[in-house]
Simulated scan of single mutants.
Amino acid sequence: MTRLIVWRHGNTDWNAANRVQGQLDIPLNDLGREQAAAAAPLLAALRPDAIVTSDLRRAADTAAALVALTGLPVRTDARLRERYYGRWQGLTMTEVAQRFPAEHARWRAGEPDPGNEVESLEDLGKRVGTALQEAADAVPGGTVVVATHGGGARQGCGYLIGWDSTVLRSVGPLNNCHWTELRFDEVRGWQLRGHNVGLITQAPPPAPV
């Protein structure tokens, strides 16, 4: 049975400030590096066969903590990047609400395509989900750890399971350095086996951006 561990990156200063990162390349802070180092032994105990990561530093540096323990090679895939947040990137969510109130309200309401050049949830799910499927296909029957981002992880996993954005709104966000576990059954397909798994090292951020 193939197992996917979809791992959100560690904390960044922008996470702490509730600032929209999107596809901007923001590094881990000290807490984020500590989180990655603490989570890596738990993931190494799952005996992964492959490690794949987003090419953004906060995900790649998170994956590096697991690479250091396992000695496995790591493959990067730009499709695993976070949702592109268009004109919101670099702003705090308070600033977004002030500058783009209509679009922010649509985003808060869960509309899949709020405007302001923000990537649609459908496009995000297909992009990340396709990358997750290909990572799993490369190691049939094995365990793959994928280091990625909060919003991308939720939509990508939803794409594999077949859940639409309405259902996914009921799934809580991943805390920094926590993960979702999916397993593939030949009869039943992809199944959710665990969500928001990991060590509690901080309060969850207000939004997975």
Rank of each mutant, 00 (worst) to 15 (best):
P48F: 06
D49V: 05
D49P: 10
I51H: 04
I51E: 03
V52T: 05
V52W: 01
T53V: 08
T53N: 09
S54Y: 01
S54I: 04
D55N: 12
L56P: 04
R58E: 03
R58H: 04
A59V: 07
A60Q: 06
A60L: 13
D61A: 10
T62R: 01
T62W: 03
T62S: 15
T62Y: 04
V67T: 11
A68Q: 08
L69N: 07
T70W: 05
G71I: 08
L72V: 08
P73E: 08
V74F: 06
R75N: 08
A78T: 10
R79G: 08
R79A: 14
R81W: 02
R81L: 00
E82N: 03
R83T: 12
Y84E: 11
Y84A: 12
Y85F: 15
G86Y: 01
G86S: 01
Q89D: 07
Q89F: 01
Q89S: 14
L91W: 03
L91H: 09
L91F: 12
T92V: 08
M93T: 13
M93G: 11
M93R: 15
T94W: 08
T94A: 15
E95M: 07
V96E: 05
A97P: 06
Q98E: 14
Q98A: 15
F100Q: 07
F100R: 05
P101W: 04
A102K: 12
E103H: 00
H104A: 14
A105P: 03
A105M: 00
R106Y: 00
R106D: 00
R106S: 02
W107R: 10
W107M: 11
W107L: 14
W107Y: 14
R108I: 11
R108E: 15
A109R: 13
G110H: 02
G110T: 04
E111W: 13
P112T: 13
P112S: 12
D113P: 03
G115W: 06
N116A: 15
N116I: 10
N116D: 15
E117A: 14
V118I: 15
E119D: 02
S120G: 15
S120H: 04
E122Y: 11
L124M: 15
G125N: 07
G125F: 05
G125T: 10
K126V: 14
K126A: 15
R127F: 02
G129R: 00
G129M: 04
T130W: 03
T130R: 10
A131E: 07
Q133Y: 11
E134H: 08
E134W: 03
A135F: 05
A136K: 02
D137H: 11
P140D: 03
P140F: 01
G141D: 05
G141T: 00
T143M: 01
T143Q: 02
V144E: 01
V144S: 00
V145Y: 06
V146K: 06
A147C: 12
A147R: 02
T148L: 12
H149E: 09
G150W: 02
G150Y: 03
G150M: 02
G151F: 01
G151W: 02
G152L: 05
R154W: 02
R154K: 13
